[in-house]
């Protein structure tokens, strides 16, 4: 009886194993789907961080789009030029110059520069504060509650003195911050060089109204557009035409930035914003307490 039970148990398992193996083996051949082998290669060449900076859900989707739908290979903001070249080799296409996309925060007002601020006791998020009137006078500028900071997967944007500031050394240009900003003051801009000139304000109000709410905002005075036609002033706000922006126009751009009465034309990019601490910095490895300086040697008089 016991032997038969054990035998039957073992037999059942072996029979099921054989049966399922057979069925699955047959199904594998019968339901075989042809997949382009290049998809696997493209996935291997992509960084695999699934940031969505290319506009697709993840690296896998982008790889399928490259192979099956002939999507351009230079859309990966994380991999940059080297990744685009590797993908070009796999797909057999020539890679045009891939311009890196980086965010620019179009607001330059720190907390001290903002006027007309009221006490805000709601949720400390830009998305909710944006629904409330009079959190600050300026209805265009950075709110400084750091939705972008929380959204960033690369620790590349931080709120410093109430202003979102990009760390261009860490940024990969995935665009998460620009998507989350409720006031749409972060734009993803093509950086043709490491540093580019940008208009650091988003306020469309007339100059008189801007001076009431901000110490630094753009007045729409057209000083820049008189010097260079790259600047277009519409709705009291200067914008820079990046399609025409080239290195050989640099003299007029610099001249325009010097003429701006509110210093709103600033260079952004590597070395601006948050400057990362590098290993070369002359700092001691371990900071030890200096007891000499803490000894109180004040002489009491009187």
């Amino acid at each position: 009886m016991v032997m038969v039970t054990v035998g039957l148990a073992a037999g059942t398992m072996i029979l099921m194993a054989v049966l399922f193996t057979f069925i699955l083996g047959w199904a594998n051949r019968a339901f075989h789907v042809e997949i382009d082998p290049r998809i696997g290669k493209v996935i291997a060449a992509l960084p695999g961080v699934n940031c969505g900076g290319c506009g697709f859900v993840g690296c896998g989707e982008y790889a399928e789009a490259i192979v099956l739908e002939n999507t351009p290979v230079n859309k990966c903001t994380v991999g940059g030029m080297s990744c685009a070249l590797a993908l070009g080799d796999i797909m057999g296409v020539r890679v045009d110059v891939s311009v890196s996309l980086r965010p620019i925060v179009h607001c330059g007002a720190r907390t001290v520069d903002r006027l007309g601020r009221s006490e805000y006791r709601g949720e400390m998020m830009c998305r909710t504060a944006n629904l409330v009137a009079d959190v600050q006078g300026c209805t265009y500028g950075c709110l400084g509650f750091g939705d972008c900071e929380r959204e960033c997967d690369y620790d590349a944007i931080h709120v410093i003195d109430g202003l979102a500031t990009v760390d261009y050394g860490a940024c990969v240009g995935c665009g998460a911050c620009a998507r989350v900003c409720p006031r749409n003051i972060i734009t993803i801009t093509p950086f043709r060089s490491n540093r580019i000139l940008a208009v650091i304000c988003s306020n469309h109000d007339a100059g008189k109204d801007v001076t009431k709410v901000c110490k630094v905002g753009c007045l729409g005075c057209r000083a820049c557009s008189r010097i260079s036609n790259l600047f277009v002033v519409e709705n009291n706000l200067s914008t820079l035409n990046y399609a025409e922006y080239t290195e050989d126009r640099m003299t007029e751009l610099v001249a325009a930035s010097k003429r701006c009465p509110r210093h709103r034309l600033q260079f952004v990019g590597e070395g601006t914003g948050i400057v990362p601490v590098t290993m070369d910095d002359d700092r001691p490895d371990v900071v030890r307490a200096d007891f000499k300086s803490t000894v109180d040697d004040t002489e009491w008089r009187g």
Partner: peptide
Amino acid sequence: QFVEMYIRK
């Protein structure tokens, strides 16, 4: 496993 292969096809 089987269902996955089936609906994939």
